[in-house]
Nucleic acid binder design. Structure first.
Length: 277
DNA sequence: CATATGTCCTGAGAGC
DNA sequence: TGCTCTCAGGACATAT
């Protein structure tokens, strides 16, 4: 479940290919089932092979490999991984992007469940096609005012609203629970009822948690699918306050056990004592 | 239009 | 031991 910190870690790991020319974009032999590649592998290869990588950027939970004209948008979704190093196993590598010249560099897009998506977007259409259409402001860029304005337009529970990538991009199920706990906000609170004060706390908690999690190179959960750019576990899973810690003592009050509830068919973890409405 | 639900997928773990 | 069932959740598609 790569979220912003995990995807940012992937982005940083790909930086060595900036300035390098793409030799080939292929699918590995004997791979399992093909993932979604839009519009097609053939088209992507035709447009990007021979081009120089000008930058690696990130929008929410997507990584963009950019040439002069194009951006190859990688969406890891549940178990996707984009890396220059080794991958957990060779059997789930879905795409190779090989660079020309020395040293040999090859981006491997690995994805155990195969729900990831690779999509070619013209660079001048990123704003219209991605940002306006599908994604709100990135969680690391959104201002406190924008954060408040965009969240308080919906009646949905604040936890559910945080997961809506059109409101803001980058927060997923894990970090949503974590930031609500730090900000001491009830995950069931209708987002429109968020006070200015609560919104400021939540925005600050979000920035703090995401930036710290980036320093730890993300969270590797029990499924072990997420790896940092060296194919090692991340470190932030050891810092989780509530996520996947049902029945464990709340680290803030140390009096109440963490509770798990389900909102919009996703687990939410929180402390009913610290996060009461 | 806003919101809710169904769907994809694989591997781990539970239960019998 | 080996089978079946359930669950994990991002984001898209479809339904209400």
């Amino acid at each position: 479940m790569p979220e912003l910190p995990e995807v940012e870690t992937m982005r940083r790991g790909l930086l060595p290919i900036v300035g390098r020319r793409i030799r080939s974009i292929t699918t590995p032999p004997c791979t399992c089932r093909p993932i979604v590649i839009k519009p097609s592998l053939r088209q992507i290869a035709a447009e990007m092979e021979g081009e120089v990588v000008q930058g690696i950027s990130r929008l929410g939970k997507r990584v963009l490999i950019e040439t002069a004209q194009w951006a190859l948008v990688l969406q890891p979704r549940m178990t996707g991984l984009a890396t220059l190093s080794d991958v957990p196993d060779a059997g789930h590598v879905r795409l190779w992007i090989e660079m020309r010249g020395k040293p040999n560099l090859k981006v491997q897009f690995w994805d155990q469940r195969g729900l990831g998506i690779v999509e070619l977007v013209a660079r001048d259409q990123i704003l219209s096609q991605l940002v306006d259409d599908k994604l709100g402001p990135d969680a690391l860029v959104i201002t406190a005012q924008q954060f408040f304005d965009r969240l308080t337009v919906t009646k949905r529970p604040i936890k559910v609203a945080l997961l809506d990538q059109k409101i803001l991009a980058g927060v997923g199920n894990l970090y949503a629970s974590e930031m609500l706990h730090v900000a001491k906000i009830d995950p069931a609170l209708p987002a429109e009822q968020l006070s200015v004060k609560q919104s400021k706390r939540l925005h600050a908690a979000m920035l703090d948690i995401l930036n710290t999690a980036i320093l730890y190179e993300g969270s590797t959960l029990s499924d072990g699918t997420y790896r940092n750019s060296l194919n090692e576990s991340g470190g932030y899973q050891n810092e989780h306050r509530v996520y996947d810690r049902e029945d464990k003592l709340c680290p803030a009050c140390r009096k109440q056990k963490i509770v798990r509830i389900v909102q919009a068919q996703r687990s939410t973890f929180y402390c009913p004592r610290c996060q009461a409405s």
